Simulated assay, not measured.
Amino acid sequence: MANIKSAKKRILVTETKTARNKAIKSKVKTMVKKVEAAVEAKDVAAAQDALKAAISEINKAGTKGVYHKKTCSRKIARLSKAVSAIA
């Protein structure tokens, strides 16, 4: 356990940021699963709606620094490709 005050603070800040990042990643994964489920069911309308929500969530995660910019682009491209394949 840390003895120095600044080290104790860093531990608290790290825990806070870790929890925030985990929540954001979880939300992105949930949105991606919704898109994939709609694509699996070949439901075009639901897939497009889910894709729109997923893109928004992925971009938010990228803006907040949870995901790298190129990771966000890759995820969006793969989802878009899957949705356009069933459309």
Rank of each mutant, 00 (worst) to 15 (best):
A50K: 02
K25L: 15
G65N: 07
A41Q: 07
V83P: 00
K75P: 03
S26C: 12
L79Q: 01
K25N: 12
A50S: 12
A37S: 12
A37F: 03
T18C: 08
A23H: 11
A38D: 05
K17A: 05
E40V: 04
K52W: 04
E15N: 05
K22W: 07
K81Q: 13
K64W: 10
G65L: 04
L79D: 00
G65T: 09
A38W: 00
K64D: 14
G62W: 06
K70C: 07
R78K: 15
A85N: 05
R74P: 08
N3K: 15
A61R: 01
T18W: 05
A54N: 01
K29S: 11
K75Y: 11
K34I: 06
K5E: 14
R78G: 11
A46V: 13
T16E: 11
R20L: 13
A50Q: 04
T14Q: 15
A53K: 09
R78E: 14
A77Y: 03
A85P: 05
A82F: 02
T30R: 10
A54K: 00
R78D: 13
Y67W: 15
K17P: 00
K81D: 09
K27S: 12
T16G: 04
T30H: 10
K70D: 13
V32N: 05
G65P: 07
N59I: 14
V39E: 00
T30Q: 13
I86R: 07
A45F: 03
A87C: 10
E40M: 07
K60Q: 12
S26R: 13
T18Y: 09
E57T: 14
N59A: 15
A2P: 11
A38Y: 00
V66G: 03
V44D: 02
A38F: 01
A2D: 10
R74Y: 10
A7N: 11
K33E: 12
K81V: 07
M1E: 12
V13P: 00
L51C: 01
T30P: 01
Q48T: 04
T14E: 10
A19K: 12
N59P: 07
T30Y: 08
A61V: 06
V44N: 03
A54G: 03
V13H: 02
K22A: 11
V28K: 01
A54H: 00
